[in-house]
Computed example of a mutant assay.
Amino acid sequence: MAGIKTNAVRLLEVNKIKYNIKEYEAPQGFLDGLSVAKATGMDPKRVFKTLVLQGSSKEHYVCVIPVDCELDLKKAAKHFGEKKIEMILARDITKVTGYIKGGCSPVGMKKQFKTAIDESAANFENIVVSAGKVGLQMDVRVDDLLNLIDADLVGLIINKE
């Protein structure tokens, strides 16, 4: 897969953002985030998954959270100013984002949606997100990612006490 240029990778390059590609095997076509972290030898707290949601207003939003965490829908709704927000159906991912399940990057979607990255990303200089294809992750500076996709750092996860 070396040298593959996805929309996400192209956008990083056009904006002169440094990144490292991490490849992994996904023989069944999709791995959950924890399996991706394990396959790439990364700390799951530094590997983030991209979730696409729809509010009661019918607007779409993107939340980027650690793979070992669960999204708090109430926190997401409050941040985006929605009464209610929910995950879109897996079958709608490609139609909405241009990406497929398991390969959805917060960078380079068909449209730039309002995006929030969980505040835990601030604990790291770099985080790992999908590079826009199953089997491909990109390690990128948090500040570069926030600026590129115009995202906010927000508390988005369910706190496991």
Rank of each mutant, 00 (worst) to 15 (best):
residue 2 A to Q: 15
residue 2 A to L: 15
residue 2 A to E: 15
residue 5 K to W: 06
residue 5 K to C: 02
residue 7 N to G: 04
residue 8 A to E: 06
residue 9 V to C: 01
residue 12 L to Y: 02
residue 13 E to H: 08
residue 15 N to C: 02
residue 15 N to S: 12
residue 16 K to R: 05
residue 20 N to A: 01
residue 20 N to V: 03
residue 24 Y to D: 02
residue 24 Y to L: 00
residue 28 Q to V: 10
residue 33 G to A: 00
residue 33 G to F: 02
residue 37 A to L: 06
residue 37 A to M: 06
residue 37 A to C: 02
residue 38 K to T: 14
residue 40 T to G: 00
residue 40 T to Y: 02
residue 41 G to E: 05
residue 42 M to Y: 05
residue 43 D to W: 07
residue 44 P to M: 06
residue 44 P to N: 02
residue 45 K to Y: 10
residue 46 R to T: 11
residue 46 R to A: 00
residue 53 L to N: 03
residue 54 Q to L: 04
residue 55 G to S: 00
residue 55 G to W: 10
residue 55 G to L: 05
residue 57 S to N: 10
residue 59 E to P: 06
residue 61 Y to D: 05
residue 61 Y to M: 01
residue 63 C to Y: 05
residue 64 V to Y: 06
residue 64 V to K: 08
residue 65 I to L: 10
residue 66 P to C: 07
residue 66 P to H: 00
residue 68 D to L: 06
residue 69 C to M: 12
residue 74 K to P: 06
residue 76 A to W: 01
residue 77 A to L: 04
residue 81 G to N: 10
residue 82 E to G: 11
residue 83 K to A: 09
residue 83 K to W: 07
residue 84 K to C: 10
residue 85 I to Q: 14
residue 86 E to M: 14
residue 87 M to G: 13
residue 88 I to P: 09
residue 89 L to D: 14
residue 89 L to P: 15
residue 89 L to S: 15
residue 91 R to G: 02
residue 92 D to N: 14
residue 93 I to R: 07
residue 93 I to N: 13
residue 95 K to S: 08
residue 97 T to R: 09
residue 97 T to Y: 05
residue 99 Y to F: 11
residue 101 K to I: 14
residue 103 G to Y: 12
residue 105 S to A: 02
residue 110 K to M: 11
residue 115 T to D: 05
residue 116 A to C: 09
residue 118 D to H: 07
residue 118 D to K: 00
residue 119 E to L: 13
residue 120 S to A: 13
residue 120 S to R: 14
residue 120 S to Q: 11
residue 120 S to L: 13
residue 120 S to D: 13
residue 122 A to G: 11
residue 123 N to L: 13
residue 125 E to W: 04
residue 128 V to G: 09
residue 129 V to E: 07
residue 129 V to Y: 08
residue 130 S to Q: 07
residue 131 A to D: 03
residue 131 A to K: 08
residue 132 G to I: 07
residue 132 G to V: 09
residue 133 K to H: 12
residue 135 G to R: 02
residue 137 Q to E: 13
residue 138 M to I: 15
residue 140 V to Q: 01
residue 140 V to P: 03
residue 140 V to C: 00
residue 142 V to R: 10
residue 142 V to K: 01
residue 143 D to P: 00
residue 144 D to F: 08
residue 147 N to S: 13
residue 148 L to G: 12
residue 149 I to C: 04
residue 152 D to P: 02
residue 155 G to Q: 15
residue 156 L to D: 06
residue 156 L to E: 12
residue 157 I to S: 14
residue 158 I to H: 09
residue 159 N to Y: 04
residue 160 K to Q: 14
residue 161 E to K: 14
